[in-house]
Design a protein around this nucleic acid. Structure first.
Lengths: 194, 194
DNA sequence: TTGATAGGCTAATTAACATTAGCTATAATG
DNA sequence: CATTATAGCTAATGTTAATTAGCCTATCAA
């Protein structure tokens, strides 16, 4: 990993944990193993690091939600749907980079318009667009009742998003959150799947 | 309004807008119309102001969700339920103090355990407990299908909570968010109400 | 070989910020 | 009326943070 990448990595961790204003350039440099002024050989300043982090979050978002590839094959049964969805959610919840990015966005969402919009994209639009496609696929297969796929995607994802946010701030409740999500998911299946 | 209250008021506004670390004691004092050092006649320090704000948020929470009074009478029809629920949500979304408190909590949720817990209470538990009671009431009246009221409360509130969060960070989308919530609410009624 | 570039360092600069010390006037209290 | 508490002020202090200047060395291309 290049120094430039190491800086981003360290900054993401610290910003997620202590917020942008709660993190000093020196702390970032410490983790990287250089002195603070050396950091300016790689980035113009602290704000520049934040921008680069948002850039990379946006790129990752594009890779995750931009293409059709990441949907995988349409689940054929209730149990399969529950299984793959729980895996997807569990991954999103636990993957360190995704988790830290979420924590960064949620804390800095009021800092500027770019971050506001990115937060909405990550927290609402992306997930919903993705699940709308999966649900649409299952509708076409006749295993989900006919309805607006986007609307059902919201019904499906909103409770999960809130529980993920909860487990970000209270990691000791992670298990409880997952159980909660599964309960909700089973309810969703009962209501909307044949 | 006493100076002590004015300080809390100003601090809430600034913390909501710029975060705790993004706000200086001097800025707070400026709004109040005193000099920064005078502020220490009322609070021991900046952190003390934050704690007082959380105290008052918790008190308000207790008043809103602690008693049975605020549920009002059980709605008797779909349209009435939609109307009173939209009013409730619209109020929660627009009331300046509630809105700023939400913004404060969401930004500072990782600062300490107390704020983490308060955030979960405000964003999840309180709203859900309240709506669980309303839904339970409507179940007893036979206008909502028999099911776990707490679970239905989540299905009902989660999408609304996310849209409210969105309108906090993108106030220009407020109208869109409200329309979205109403759409969801009508869907909810279609699925769960006779 | 030379010379430039990249990437590290130390030292210095500048600004902001939280907080304390100590003074003063007004208002409340005995 | 005397005094004591309240709540404001200015000035000062100590700390921390971001950033800049300028130096040094290793690498690599001409």
């Amino acid at each position: 990993m290049s120094t430039k990448e190491k800086i981003l990595d360290a900054a993401l961790t610290l910003f997620a944990e202590n917020g942008y204003d709660g993190t000093s350039v020196e702390q970032i440099a410490n983790i990287v193993g250089i002195k603070a002024p050396s950091l300016y050989k790689h980035y113009k300043g602290k704000e520049d690091i934040l921008n680069a982090l948002i850039d990379s979050a946006e790129e990752r978002y594009e890779v995750m939600f931009g293409s059709e590839k990441n949907i995988g094959k349409v689940p054929e049964s209730r149990e399969e749907f529950i299984k793959v969805t729980m895996e997807r959610i569990s991954f999103t919840m636990r993957d360190p980079i995704i988790r830290k990015t979420r924590m960064l966005l949620v804390q800095e969402q009021f800092r500027n318009e770019r971050i506001s919009e990115a937060t909405t994209r990550h927290q609402l639009d992306g997930i919903q667009r993705m699940f709308a496609k999966i649900i649409k696929g299952m509708m076409d297969e006749g295993i989900v009742v006919k309805d607006d796929p986007k609307l059902l995607a919201v019904e499906l994802t909103a409770p999960a998003v809130l529980q993920i946010a909860r487990s970000d701030r209270q990691p000791q409740c992670e298990k409880e959150c997952m159980e909660y999500i599964e309960k909700h998911l089973r309810h969703f299946c009962k209501v909307y799947m044949r």
